[in-house]
Design a protein around this nucleic acid. Structure first.
Lengths: 158, 158
DNA sequence: GTCTTTGCAAATTGTTTGCAGAAAT
DNA sequence: ATTTCTGCAAACAATTTGCAAAGAC
């Protein structure tokens, strides 16, 4: 059984567990995600999906991707929210990102300097710089009883 | 001379060098950026700015932030483009990001596992996971003729 | 048959742009 | 005086939502 088929089976299993209807669209959107090794935008997913199912509407792709995130079979490539953010710190530094309130805080750590980078020969990439994104919960959100906004899904155990 | 004042002076110096007019709005937007240690969205910058200069329009803040990026005194918090992206790889992994075409490619490297993380006692953050964002130029963009201007045009579409 | 999901189109939200007047050099 | 900015409002882009019809269970 291929890796691909295994993932599809797991996906279907999860849908059943979560009481999500197993629609053609969902399967095709998930397959489209599995095919792509980059981190596609919704539009790119739409394109791939519409090669097989030209009828699918963008709205469905949006909803389906969100559903897949809820099911835990895909992730948003960090930074929720659609707004661009800016940083007045122009030096090499790293980030702490609160997964609940989306706060981003800079940090520095000498132990994280000079890390080994992937070889250009292997990846084809010419490496210029790197930064480390640490995800977790900020002090405030640890203290807070539960998310004030019910927008984010619970980790596990429905 | 405070760190703050030094940065402001550098900013004014750069404006002069680049032939950018030194307007109140630009100074106030830059000061707003310096005040904030998170990575504010345009809206958040607007709020801070409007505490001092209620007249400032959102459009100006957008243009000014862009100007500040051009001047090199602030940065966009990783990856331009306003579209959300998704990733079918739900495991711990890292990213290679092409600064020219915005392509994102996953990678893994055992040498980058188990890195020391900032102490919760110091940062207040409870660390859950981390990923490394490596920026550089992908093979295609290294091969491609350099873009006509310093901006991010649309090179080879995916 | 019942409940969920889809597709459409319209509403939101985030970002960019044209232009006349205001400000900077 | 000249050139660059700003503010407004309207264009544009990305995302979300209400609702009737279609599909899954």
């Amino acid at each position: 059984m291929s890796e691909f088929a295994i993932k599809l089976a797991q996906f279907e299993e999860r849908c059943r567990q979560a009481g999500f209807a197993l629609t053609v669209q969902r399967r095709v959107v998930y397959e489209a995600m599995l095919q792509r090794d980059d981190h596609p935008t919704v539009d790119q997913v739409c394109e791939t999906v519409q090669e097989r199912l030209p009828e699918v509407s963008r709205a469905t792709v949006y909803r389906t991707l969100e559903a897949l995130v809820e099911l835990g079979v895909i992730r948003r490539a960090h930074h929720a929210g659609t707004a661009v953010r800016f940083d007045s710190n122009i030096h090499h530094h790293h980030h702490l990102i609160c997964t609940q309130c989306q706060r981003i805080v800079d940090f520095d750590d000498a132990r994280l300097e000079g890390l080994p980078m992937p070889e250009p020969a292997t990846t084809g990439f010419r490496v210029d710089d790197y930064s480390i994104h640490v995800s977790g919960l900020c002090a405030d959100c640890q203290a807070a009883p539960s998310p004030s906004s019910g927008s984010e899904a619970a980790p596990a155990a429905p």
